[in-house]
Every structure is written in C-alpha cells, then in structure tokens.
C-alpha cells in the first residue's frame, strides 16, 4: 500500500467527555498529500477525532485525552506545544459555512493578520488573491472583495472559508462535513476543489455520505462507537471491506 510520507500519525488515542469515553484506542497513519475520509454512523466520534487533530476539542468543558497525535514527529498534546502555532499548521473548515461578518477580503486576510508579522498591503492582497484562486472562487468574487461575505450563497461562503484556511498556508486541512449544508451543485464544486487541493495539502474529511467518501478520498477510516473498525485505501474498503461491520454500514444496513 502506497501511502507517501506519513506526517500525521495518531497513536493509541483516547478521548473522554467527563466520564464518557468518546474515542477508544485510535491508531492510524494519515498519508501526506492525500484525502483521508472518516466515515461512520452519527455519534461514532468522527467529528471528535477530527477536532482532536487541531485541538479544537479544548473549547469544550471536561474533555480529557490520552495517547498521542504526532505531526511531523511531534506530539501535539505535549505541554510545550503552542496551540496557536498548531492551528496555523492544521487548518479547519466547518460543517456550516461560518464566515465572519466582514468583507470577503478581511475574511481571507484574517488568519494572516492575526499572525506575528503582518505583511504589507500589497503582499496581503497577493495572499488573498492566491487563496481565493486556490479555493476556486476568485472569478466569482474578484469584483466584490470589499463587500460582505455574508451576501454570498452558502456554497460560495464555504469556499471563502476554505480560502481563509488556505491563506495561512497550513500543511493539513481538516474538513467537518464541509458540504452537508449545501445543495448538490455547490457540493460538486467543493468536492472538485478537495480533489485538487490534495496536490498541495494533506486533507482529512469527515463525511456521512458514502458516495462522497468514495468520490474524493484515497483512504478511508471507518469508526463505530468511538473505535476504529477499519482503515485502508477507499477503493478496497468500498469493494472488499475486511470487517463485516464495515460491509454492513457501507451497504446501508445501518447508519
């Protein structure tokens, strides 16, 4: 199995909400510059696992973790890790488009502006243009960069949110059901985009849509009740899953 270099590795990872165990002994290696899909029934912990990779779970009270998540060989849960730095390396796109009530330009420039050295205006304009082009929305918004991002359609907002994440030049992009709030045409655009983005970025996407996982991902992890049931190349998992549970889920027996 060809996986490229492995820069993101999850090792014996457990997560608790207060006393409840939400993730149990997850170990998997996420290949670089590929799309890895996390699938599983509702409440199986797929979003929780995703949010563990940029430590967004810390926003929630009573979360405790054990085990390791290694990025470039460094455990991101080590005490001396700077979360702000980590989140610049591991970007995130949320389930519902969540642009700030600011202009399109300011949305995309936000992450860069919050950094330690804010570039000059021309450099910032370059970054915004590059990011919007990468997110395949430049042509639609180039004449209205200084209008509010809230005026855009849901699909456009989501691509602005992707552009916003790209602007800080992350290594990994986490996507939490990024198309679940969008119509089929907007979804297709996002999927196309994900497919192209993997040339530059490592992408982890949570989805409950099996077809979507099959379309966009090279690798798939199947989670159930907080445990990793199966992890491997998407094609193999869709056609010839190793576990009976995976097969039942994929064929729509439950979920």
């Amino acid at each position: 199995m060809q996986t490229g270099t492995d820069r993101l590795e999850i090792k014996g990872f457990n997560l608790y909400y207060h006393r409840t165990k939400a993730l149990e002994d997850i170990s998997m290696t996420i290949p670089e510059k590929r799309v890895t899909a996390i699938i599983g029934p509702s409440g199986c912990g797929k979003s929780t696992l995703l949010r563990s990779i940029n430590r967004m779970n810390e926003m929630i009270d009573g979360v405790k973790v054990e085990g390791q998540i290694l990025l470039d060989g460094e455990d991101i849960y080590q005490k001396d890790i700077d979360v702000v730095e980590l989140r610049r390396k591991v970007g995130m796109v949320f389930q519902r488009p969540n642009p700030f009530p600011k202009s399109i330009f300011e949305n995309v420039a936000f992450g860069v502006r919050m950094g330690d050295n804010v570039p000059a205006k021309e450099k910032l304009e370059e970054v915004v243009e590059r990011s919007l082009k990468e997110a395949a929305i430049w042509d639609e918004v180039k004449d209205r960069l200084h209008r509010s991002a809230m005026e855009l359609s849901g699909g456009q907002q989501q691509r602005v949110c992707i552009a916003r994440a790209l602007a800080v030049e992350p290594e990994v992009i986490l996507m939490d059901e990024p198309a679940s709030a969008l119509d089929p045409i907007a979804t297709a655009k996002i999927e196309e985009l994900i497919f192209r983005l993997k040339e530059k970025y490592t992408i982890v996407i949570v989805t409950h849509n099996m077809q979507q996982a099959a379309r966009v991902s090279g690798f798939t992890a199947f989670l159930m009740l907080g445990k990793l049931v199966e992890f491997g190349p998407t094609e193999k998992m869709m056609t010839n899953p190793a576990s009976k549970l995976t097969e039942e889920y994929i064929t729509g027996r439950f979920g």
């Binding site: 967004m56 926003m59 702000v84 610049r88 970007g91 642009p99 700030f100 950094g115």
Partner: peptide, 17 residues
C-alpha cells in the same frame, strides 16, 4: 454564534484576538 469564535481560533487566532 459560537461557530464564529471557533472559526477564528481554527485560523490560529488567540482567544483574545
């Protein structure tokens, strides 16, 4: 919305930012 705070944090903003 909480999602906007999360959005900012996910972009590497500090809590205060």
């Amino acid at each position: 919305p909480q999602a906007e705070r999360a959005g900012a944090l996910a972009l590497g903003a500090t809590k205060w930012q």
